[in-house]
Design a protein around this nucleic acid. Structure first.
Lengths: 113, 113
DNA sequence: CAGAATCCACTTCGATACTG
DNA sequence: CAGTATCGAAGTGGATTCTG
């Protein structure tokens, strides 16, 4: 198996598709947090350290529309909304594991200068 | 092998580190294009379809400072500048392959609307 | 050719206030 | 609790012009 490159992977290839889903600075982290299991809105917000609810809502909606996660509203008081990865969402685990492995083996450079 | 998650991966983990490097919408694509071998500035620009030189310059500088690629200036006329992945940069191949595989197996949803 | 510099458009993100 | 609505700040990308 060789390296990736434009020969096997021109514009519109799988890498671009993945980038569409794991877009922006939060999407990847949201998916990571949901990987072990469903979580609630506030739970996600506090774990990810997101100060604003708006951004999280936007990211969750985008991922929902892309079929990565589902949003379930429990009609209770107080309301409880649970986000859970779909099969497609869970399949992103392989990508996250690759990112995790690379990050662990390649810490930040000694000096950024 | 389990799934990824905050239990094994709190803030500051490898995933975040990888996201620092593959940041924005161009970094990943630049690394992908350089994976098969060195390329010149204009070559990268045309293959990636980047209309503006500024953005490409910014991305290349960022990746250079992070130790992902090297910039070599050949003192010729016309000048020739070649960008090449470092060992660390080439090691990102595993991440790109994971992204490629996921994207191939998970095309865009039936309707994005 | 490979940029640097400048200006501008768009998106993303955050803070605040309010609602079912 | 889990949002929505609105505003504004910030970052990123693009177009243009100029230079060694």
């Amino acid at each position: 198996m060789g390296t990736i490159g434009s020969e096997q992977c021109k514009s519109g290839c799988g890498v671009e598709r993945t980038l569409q889903v794991l877009d922006g600075k939060w999407a990847t982290l949201v998916v990571r947090e949901l990987m072990p299991g469903p979580k609630r809105f506030t739970e996600l917000r506090s774990v990810l350290g997101m100060p604003s609810a708006k951004t999280l809502t936007d990211r969750l909606r985008a991922l929902e529309h892309q079929g990565i996660l589902t949003r379930t509203v429990h009609a209770e008081v107080p309301p409880r909304v649970v986000y859970e990865l779909t099969g497609q969402g869970r399949s992103l685990n392989s990508v996250l594991m690759a990112m995790l492995a690379w990050g662990e083996e390649n810490p930040a450079p000694v000096a950024v200068r």
